[in-house]
Amino acid sequence: MAEAPSEPVKLVLYVAGETPKSLAAIRNLEKICSEHLAGKYRVEVIDLKKQPQLAREHGIVAIPTLVKALPVPIRKIIGDLSDTQKVLVHLSVEE
């Protein structure tokens, strides 16, 4: 299957300050991005501790949660992103 002209993946990671799982999610995402999505992503980290109202946009309940905002459809990955394969499947990026 031919790949669609690459549209940058926009990811939004919702964290709650520096809780262990928030920090773990940031680290895991950095690793996945650098290893599997090099140059094809844009990441925004939103600290809901500081701006809780931003949870509304993507209806965030559990933290940490990663939202693939673009390309549609929107996908949510809940948890600390420690399962790399699962994250890649949800981001529709398969090796």
Partner: peptide, 9 residues
């Protein structure tokens, strides 16, 4: 359940 989150909104 698996302890992957530690905060809720």
């Amino acid at each position: 359940r698996e302890g992957e989150i530690d905060a809720v909104v």
